[in-house]
Amino acid sequence: MAKSVLLICFLGVSFIFGAAADQSPLQDFCVAQAGGAVLVNGLACKDPRTVQANDFSLSGLHLPANTSNAVGSKVTPVFVAQLPGLNTLGISMARIDYAPWGINPPHTHPRATEILVVLEGTLEVGFVTSNPDNRLVSKVLQKGDVFVFPQGLVHFQRNSGSMNAVAIAALSSQSPGVITVANAAFGSTPDIAMDILVKAFQVDENIVSQIQSKF
């Protein structure tokens, strides 16, 4: 019961928090039209007369996700792609599950600030300030603690406990975007030129090739 109350309060704050993000809507709602041919900054609207309650609802966020992967975490997003009713409302959320010592690797959200609350376990979290300082701001969070990651800054989380951990994140955009640093640098299609990566990371070609092979 306490967990449910905490989550409801957190979501309420998140909706207020999201008001300063994506542009304010000019109508009651604009449910995303799947497969729409119109290209806009966002998604085209479904005919309001055909909108149903299910357009604003998503089930299953209480279910643990499978963290059996290389990083030991799994993000379950609730973005406009999963919940069409979020279109134009300027907010989204995600559930994040962590295996013991699992990480949500360094990444950025180019279109959103993130606020995260720990539901279970212990998380070490942090973000890095922009150039030239690149200062790490980090903290260990316990159940019920909240932390904010400013828009666009590289940030991460790590389960620093021996039990599974769970967090809920709210983001100030219906489509915040995710750029995972390692995937972007070493897993792009096509590859970034070898000499660029060698100079950028100050390592030799063999190391770059080895890292690229992971992605």
Rank of each mutant, 00 (worst) to 15 (best):
S138V: 03
R135A: 11
P110Y: 03
A99I: 06
K143R: 15
K143C: 07
K143V: 14
K143N: 07
S92V: 03
L141F: 00
Q142H: 09
R95N: 02
V118E: 00
E114I: 02
G121T: 03
E120S: 01
H107S: 11
H107K: 10
F127M: 04
V128M: 01
K139A: 15
T129K: 02
A99L: 06
N131H: 13
W101E: 11
F127H: 01
P110F: 13
I115C: 14
F127Q: 00
G144C: 07
K139R: 15
A94N: 05
V125C: 15
V137I: 14
P106V: 04
D133I: 13
V118P: 02
E114D: 14
D97Y: 00
K139N: 13
V140Y: 05
N134Q: 07
L119S: 07
T113K: 00
R111L: 09
A99R: 04
G126Q: 08
L123F: 08
A99N: 03
T108G: 08
W101G: 08
L119R: 06
H107C: 07
S92F: 10
G102E: 06
I115N: 10
T108C: 12
V137R: 07
G144Y: 12
V137F: 09
I96T: 11
K139V: 15
V117S: 04
D133H: 15
A94C: 11
F127G: 03
M93H: 04
K143A: 06
L119V: 10
G144Q: 02
Q142W: 05
S130K: 14
E120N: 04
E120I: 06
L141S: 04
R95C: 00
P110Q: 06
V125M: 13
L141C: 02
K139I: 11
K143I: 09
G102R: 08
V118S: 05
G126M: 07
V125P: 09
P100W: 05
R135T: 13
H107V: 08
Y98R: 07
A94L: 09
V137H: 14
T113D: 03
N131L: 05
A112P: 04
L141N: 02
I91P: 07
